[in-house]
């Protein structure tokens, strides 16, 4: 009987262990080994932390990382500011078919690939694109307006790409908030602002935190959007990693960059949780 239970446990746990082991742990260990390898000649390597030193020794790399992190944080904040009212409307105000329809509408952009979505933005934002044409037609602009190839375009792309990942956890947490709790907030003298501040936001906090973590990580790790919409000044950390791996054949430095990204982004998430007094535990359960 006990042996049977043990076997059952092993069978249940083995997909998770295999998944974690084969797809996460082993590649990371391998990556780490690559990252502490220094090329000293054709096909010759030695173990050292030279690649990590290279990261800290070159201001460009650090600047790029800081820029990427700042833009990602900003994208997260904007996504939250836009996503919160949207999620509130879907979860609390829209009813029945409208609710499902709106939810579906949030999902629709994800039926096409990220590449196509990004191309969509390029068509809209470019100098000869729809928005520019419309502005000229309506007389708001007297010459073509270039809205592509700058940081604002990156931001639009990032926010658009991340919206779903913010809205879904927010809807889930807000749906669990009993309408009568909100009504009680008003009934006891609260106004819109205080009900939002004291009741809705504290209740939605787990959703806000988990949505923000996901959006931050997605933005930080995004490659297509910053490179395609960002133009000539678009420095994005994943671009550096890609170019080290693919263009420069420098897997060692690329792997070190990968680990710095993993480490620094974890530090940022941890720090933000500390700063806002949240814990991962309260967020997850």
């Amino acid at each position: 009987m006990q042996a049977g239970a043990k076997l059952g446990f092993i069978l249940l746990i083995s997909p998770l262990v295999l998944w974690l082991g084969l797809l996460i742990v082993i590649p990371h260990v391998d990556m780490f080994l690559v990252s502490i390898r220094e090329r000293i000649g054709v096909g010759q390597y030695q173990t050292s932390f030279a690649n990590y030193m290279a990261f800290f020794g070159e201001p460009l790399y650090i600047i790029t990382f800081i820029r990427t992190a700042m833009m990602s944080i900003l994208a997260t904040v904007i996504t939250l500011l836009i996503g919160f009212p949207v999620a509130f409307y879907i979860a609390k105000i829209a009813k029945g078919r409208l609710q499902s329809a709106l939810f579906l509408l949030c999902l629709v952009p994800f039926w096409v690939s990220e590449l196509v979505r990004t191309f969509g933005w390029m068509i809209l934002l470019r100098e000869t694109g729809l928005i520019s044409k419309f502005l000229q037609w309506s007389g708001l602009a007297d010459q073509p307006v270039e809205m592509l190839y700058n940081d604002v375009a990156i931001m639009i792309g990032l926010v658009y790409t991340s919206m779903l990942f913010m809205v879904v956890p927010l809807i889930t947490t807000m749906e669990s908030l009993d309408d009568s709790v909100i009504e009680a907030g008003y009934d006891l003298g609260g106004n819109g602002a205080s009900v939002l501040r004291e009741i809705i936001i504290p209740h939605a906090m787990p959703g806000i935190v988990s949505g923000s973590i996901v959006v931050f990580m997605l933005s930080l790790g995004n490659y297509l959007t910053p490179t395609m919409l960002g133009g000539k000044d678009s420095l994005w950390f994943t671009e550096l990693i890609y170019s080290q791996f693919i263009v420069r054949f420098n897997w060692e430095l690329g792997a070190a960059f990968g680990f710095m990204l993993l480490f620094l982004s974890s530090v940022i998430v941890w720090g933000t949780l500390k700063l806002t007094g949240q814990t991962l535990k309260s967020t997850m359960g």
């Binding site: 054709v42 460009l60 600047i63 790029t64 000539k232 000044d233 420095l235 550096l240 170019s243 080290q244 263009v247 420069r248 054949f249 420098n250």
Partner: peptide
């Protein structure tokens, strides 16, 4: 020659970062 891409890469990075 092997290793030349690293030099070029650093140059390209600096151009991208400039301005």
């Amino acid at each position: 020659p092997a290793g030349l891409e690293v030099l070029e890469g650093a140059t390209l990075d600096r151009v991208q970062a400039a301005g």
